[in-house]
Design a protein around this nucleic acid. Structure first.
Lengths: 152, 152
DNA sequence: GCTAAGTAGTTGCGTGCGCAACTATATGGA
DNA sequence: TCCATATAGTTGCGCACGCAACTACTTAGC
């Protein structure tokens, strides 16, 4: 196969910007969360549970949405369970499956943190961008995600 | 402080898309590189060196551009040095500093891999997007990066 | 010139993660 | 029914990373 077309200036700017800035941004947000005594992974876990019906999710579904391996989730759960933010519940029908269930304490904690986190997300990203950039980011990531799903 | 405005649909789509899709994209590109026998971090390291004047960079500058701590870079260097893609060179003037210097072998290897990597970057991201999305991504990350720099 | 402070790079240690192996349970043929 | 296969979750292990401590060297202040 012939070597593909090299990136144009604009394409290079988009790609390089993505590769270099997105880890910086995530690290910054992670540090912000750390100031509230919370790990970024734990925040995502609590947030996903809070949005789920009945505040609970199957472990494997949770692992998928959090982009974690099963073992990774097991270990993450250990932390939030120990902090009493989440409990493990065995399913009655299928005794292989466990649910992660957000506790009232976990929910209260998340509700306290969420607006602070939101403020950081706004100041570090959303409020810096105009409407067309916001829309473009949304559609760009939607397209990329769709393509990733087709190729597994 | 009052709780800030919650995210609009478009803002949420941009933020969630970024948070969930960008690690997926990076993982996919990383797997692509793995098929060529190369770690993503190693690729970035070689790429940065290949673009530097004289194919060499000070360790600390390289660490900054690669978003690595100094210790992280030390360990990464161990790998590529062992593979003979890079050599360490002591500076004559300031004997504290070392340079990472791309070897001919490393440069040849990178030249072989680069078009394959480029093809993956195009198919997984760039070619999926239209011109306005490309431009918006570039400007968005530039703004985010500029803000990150002001706040350290 | 000499000491204090700063800087470059390496090493010890702890952490979070994925992969592979394992246990326990469920399901789909013969 | 019974066994092969699949699935959910946990554990062992190794790896890459950051932080803190360390060594080596340079620079600034006196």
């Amino acid at each position: 196969m012939a070597s593909p077309k090299w990136l144009s200036d604009a394409e290079m700017k988009a790609w390089r910007g993505f590769v270099t800035t997105s880890p910086d941004l995530m690290n910054a947000i992670e540090r912000d969360l750390g100031a509230f005594g919370l790990d970024a992974g734990d925040y995502q876990l609590l947030a996903m549970l809070s949005e789920a019906p009945d505040h609970k999710l199957k472990m494997c579904d949770l692992a998928d949405t959090l982009r974690l391996s099963r073992s990774g989730l097991t270990r993450r759960m250990d932390g939030v369970v120990k902090a009493k933010y989440v409990v493990r519940i065995q399913d009655k029908d299928d005794r292989r499956v466990s649910f992660a269930h957000l506790t009232p304490k976990g929910y209260q904690f998340l509700k306290k943190i969420a607006p602070l986190h939101l403020k950081d997300v706004r100041s570090r990203m959303i409020d810096l961008l105009n409407d067309s950039e916001i829309k473009a980011l949304g559609s760009a990531f939607a397209k990329i995600n769709a393509y990733l799903r087709t190729t597994e």
